[in-house]
Nucleic acid binder design. Structure first.
Lengths: 309, 309
DNA sequence: TAAAAATACTCCATAGGTATTTTAT
DNA sequence: ATAAAATACCTATGGAGTATTTTTA
């Protein structure tokens, strides 16, 4: 239908009520404006303006177009604003997906670090499972994903954030592994507690423990819940290093490293290969590393404290 | 900023997530679309789309433009609707100004006639004084004006509607002019009641009565009010033929023609010279005449009934 | 006659097409 | 090797300019 140009000319003519002045306002010659208005009238099939001796006024049809044209031109002013405010990478929120066995522990330390060091960076956080996050980052509804290495996609670039070791979590009252265990395989399947199906952590644990035979009746969505059961000595589980500090607080929990095996997972930051802001995302990875480091170091200390004598 | 074309292409690309398909959707070649998208990105100064191997998705900046572009394109669809529904002269309401000494009497008969014969015709009525109406029709905020001949403007075309005679209105109890009067000049100025300043009817009356010396203390905005006073024999006034039927109902009023003079005013329909719908306005004039005719005829009968024997 | 808009024409910038190259998978 | 987008280059159209005519007050 109309072009933006034509709408501008239309508005100028409504305002000035004079072809010559409207042309001047639009920065073009009078004939050029006449032609464009004529073109609009041709498209509509009826006159939009009533030419009088000293002024030009809208016809009833033209009057119906006016509010719509004003509205459209008004909206289009937003383009300038968006362009202007979009200089630099931090002007719209980054949409970050994080697997739920990392999110709460990492964020408690990451969010303060951001408001300290990059207050201009805004995040939208989605906590979900690996599969869901993968779909979303591929579809473009997420910009970044923090997940474990099991995340396979050639269309995604990744940056390693840190290594997350798995420790054995048991109750302080527990006797069966009071002296520590050599490896996850040594865990009695009858006492193993796991997250519910779909969590990558569950898959990782099953993989490490090399068993399909565990206590199905207790499975939970939150690692938190599992550890609560562990603390009451309903069983044992594997706990990621990153979770140790938060989960061992105010809980009757014993956390020990395996004596022979060194089970671990690697946590990565992912983004789409061709995404802009590559450099910014790498800086962000560094920020995450710095935020995670104290948590991980603290966890090491906890484990050493529980070391069997 | 962006052209409408570019916005269309942008939306097609968002929808299809593929340059080739978007181009097909837009009915152009793939390079043509690529160039336009590139042009938009150049204007913004940043990529709007992230080119991936199998699909193309919005960047964070592009995502900010999307709702605005969708909105603008949506609004523009209204243009088609307006154009379509604007075939014919009756799509939008006609803004009609009518002087207040004509409006109520004429409308009571005109509006039913319209819904009977031209139900597609919608009116917006403004009741005001001549001066106000004149300004408005010149400024283009009115399409039509119904007023007396005293309406002088070369930029306006007019069509005579009817002749409105002036009769003498007095109370049935009145003695001073029970036998009728030869002319308005014969009215005792001390008994003459007029509308307040600014009404054309007042000016017409003063002109006819050739006096400036009348009962100033009773002047009203509504002819209605004046006639109420007349019926209680506070004085006499001139009544336009058009008003006779309505105003003499349920009122103790005597209406008589002048025996020598034939005072009258002519009522016209005015529109701007260069207005479209000339032909439609002439038809409208005919409709008004048809609506006024019975009122005028009825008034004649009333006057004859009061004829002095 | 004067002022305003429309028309005629010429020119150039922009958009589009085809052919081809580049890039990424 | 293939598919997709970018680029190059040419063409055509549309919008703008100047000069001029038409219209109406």
């Amino acid at each position: 239908m109309f072009t933006v140009r034509q709408m501008r000319y239309f508005e100028a003519l409504v305002t000035t009520q004079h072809f010559g002045m409207a042309a001047e306002m639009a920065g073009i010659s009078q004939p050029a404006l006449s032609v464009q208005i004529a073109e609009m009238e041709k498209m509509v099939g009826a006159p939009l303006f009533e030419r009088m001796s000293k002024k030009v006024i809208l016809t009833d049809i033209g009057r119906q177009f006016l509010p719509v044209i004003r509205d459209v031109l008004g909206r289009m002013e937003e383009f300038e604003k968006i362009s202007f405010s979009s200089r630099g990478p931090y002007h719209s929120a980054w949409r970050v997906g994080i697997i739920s066995t990392v999110a709460p522990y990492l964020l408690s330390s990451l969010l303060p670090a951001i408001s300290e060091n990059k207050p201009e960076l805004k995040l939208e956080i989605l906590e979900a499972r690996t599969e869901n996050l993968h779909q979303r980052i591929s579809a473009g509804t997420l910009d970044l994903v923090i997940a474990a290495e099991s995340f396979p996609d050639e269309k995604l670039a990744k940056e390693r954030l840190f290594v997350d070791k798995f420790y054995l979590a048991s109750s302080c009252d527990d006797k069966t592994c009071a002296g520590g265990l050599p490896s996850p395989e040594a865990i009695d399947p009858e006492r193993l507690l796991l997250l519910e199906d779909g969590h990558c952590l569950r898959d990782q644990m099953l993989d490490l423990c090399k068993t399909g035979n565990f206590r199905e009746e207790f499975s939970a969505t939150e690692l938190n819940t599992i550890l609560q059961l562990v603390s009451y000595n309903f069983g044992v589980t594997l706990i990621p290093q990153l979770a140790c500090v938060a989960e061992s607080k105010n809980r009757h929990l014993r956390i020990t490293a395996f004596t022979e095996d060194k089970p671990q997972r690697e946590i990565f930051l992912f983004w789409r290969n061709r995404s802009p802001h590559q450099a910014d995302y790498k800086n962000f990875a560094e920020l995450i590393r710095a935020a995670a480091a104290p948590l991980l170091a603290e966890a090491e200390k906890l484990v050493n404290a529980h070391k069997p004598a």
